[in-house]
Write a protein that binds this DNA or RNA. Sequence first.
DNA 1: CCATTAATAGGCG
DNA 2: CGCCTATTAATGG
Length: 213
Amino acid sequence: MAHSEINCIRHVSFFSNLPEKTLKRLVKISRHRQFFKKGDFITTPADPKALMFIDEGRAKVYTLGANGKEKLLYFINAGTIDGIENLFAPANLPKYVQATQDTWVCSMQHDDFQNLLKSAPVLTLELLNEIGSKLSATEVSISRRNLLEARDRILAYFQDWALEAGSNEFDLPLKKQEFASLIGVSPETLSRNLRTLEQQGEIKMQGKHITLL
DNA sequence: CCATTAATAGGCG
DNA sequence: CGCCTATTAATGG
C-alpha cells in the first residue's frame, strides 16, 4: 500500500484533531517514510533528529548508565511521536533511538515546526497537552524507579498493562530483558522476582503471558 | 536441523 | 541486588 502523507500525519494522535489546513501545512514541512532496518540507529547523541514519529514499526529510546549499560527509557510505536523536548532544549541528555524492527519514520525540522507553531494556535495547544502528559508519564517512571522495590515496580507495570488490555491477562509487550532495563534492574533480578511473585500467588506466568491474580 | 539469542538457575560478593 | 557462568528454552534461517 502506498504511503499517504496526510494519513501519516493524521495517524499521530497528537495531530489527529487538527484542522485539514494545518495538517496540510504539516505534511509540507515533513520528511516522509525514511526507512530504518532492524537494529539501525534513528537518533544518536552525535546525530540528534528533529521531531519525529513512527509511521510503521517500533523503536526503543535509551540512554547509557554510568557503567555503559543501556537504560531503557521507553518505546515508541507506530503513531507516536518523539523529540518534542528538543524544541526547547537542543542539547539534553545523550539519547539513542534504535529501531527494534524494520521501521519507517517521518520527521520534521525544528525550525520549520517552530515557524508553523507561530501561526497555528491549535497546534500549539495540542503540543502543550502532549508535553504535559509526557511529563507526568516521566514522573511516574522516575518515582517508580526510585521509590518502589523491584517487586512493586513490576506489579505497577503489570497493573498498567492489565488496565490497557482491559483484562487481568495480557502478554508482555516487550522482551523480559527489555522490561528489566525499563525498571532499572538486571534480567536475573527480574527473573527471580517473577518467580517469587508466582510463588506468592500474585501472578501466573507462562512465557510472556501474564495473569494478575 | 544448527546457530544465535533469550531466559533461567545457582554461586558469590 | 549485581555480576558471572552454566544450562535450558525459544527463535530464526
